[in-house]
């Protein structure tokens, strides 16, 4: 649980910082008149929404990992032997993240075809990653019934499945962006989507690396 408590402490820290930055000490009963600046952050609501969503997902994975750490010390625990393909998968996901970043840069430089190519590339690499994860699943245990044998393996399935589902959610948004490309949307209108996709991909990469590290070293 301590991981989670640290995470929530951090999250609360961010919230408190934000609130203080937005003049929570204002004596609102004394000053009246209209103020144009209401302390909203000058950015698209979608971006705020994404950051909040990432906080929620962080909470989810911190809790899974806390559960892992607590369960380890209880009993009938044997470590999992990591299938080598996970190293390859991790590299593929890193490449996907780079591709998403390049899509974003291309859009910033006004290169429509470059952005689209990089975006599709990122999508394909992500699908490859998911396929690789399925192979890893197969290698870890010959059948689902195997997962009852070892809690570490069960955790591996649960964590990678949770991560994979979040990636699939990202792919759905990515697919919509690609189809907006196909429908001929202006690049300026797509920039926000590309930025948010790249942020989300980096985030999921980070989550995966942490999960992988936990499986390896904890």
């Amino acid at each position: 649980m301590s991981n989670t408590v640290i995470f929530t402490a951090l999250a609360s820290g961010v919230i408190v910082w934000f609130l203080i930055a937005s003049r929570l000490t204002a004596k609102s009963w004394e000053s009246q008149d209209e103020k144009g600046d209401v302390g909203a952050i000058h950015t698209a609501p979608e971006r705020i929404g994404l950051w909040i969503f990432m906080a929620v997902v962080t909470s989810l994975f911190s809790l899974f990992i806390s559960a892992y750490a607590m369960r380890m010390h209880v009993g009938a625990w044997c470590h999992i032997t990591i299938p080598n393909i996970l190293w390859v998968n991790s590299l593929v996901l890193v490449a996907a993240s780079i591709a998403m970043q390049r899509a974003r840069w291309a859009a910033d430089h006004g290169s429509r075809s470059g952005a689209r190519a990089a975006l599709v590339m990122g999508g394909m690499l992500s699908v490859a990653f998911l396929a690789g994860q399925l192979v890893a699943w197969q290698q870890v245990g010959p059948s689902v019934y195997f997962i009852s044998g070892s809690p570490a393996i069960a955790f591996f399935y649960v964590l990678s499945a949770a991560h994979g589902l979040h990636l699939i959610g990202g792919l759905w948004v990515l697919g919509r962006t690609v189809s907006r490309f196909a429908a001929g949307a202006e690049l300026v209108d797509l920039r926000l989507s590309l930025q948010l996709c790249s942020v989300y991909w980096h985030f999921l990469l980070l989550v995966w690396l942490v999960v992988f590290g936990v499986l390896l070293y904890l």
């Binding site: 003049r23 209209e34 103020k35 144009g36 909203a40």
Partner: peptide, 11 residues
């Protein structure tokens, strides 16, 4: 966070 009208500060 984002959609308050003019003048509606958090406080």
């Amino acid at each position: 966070l984002q959609a308050r009208c003019r003048g509606m500060t958090l406080m």
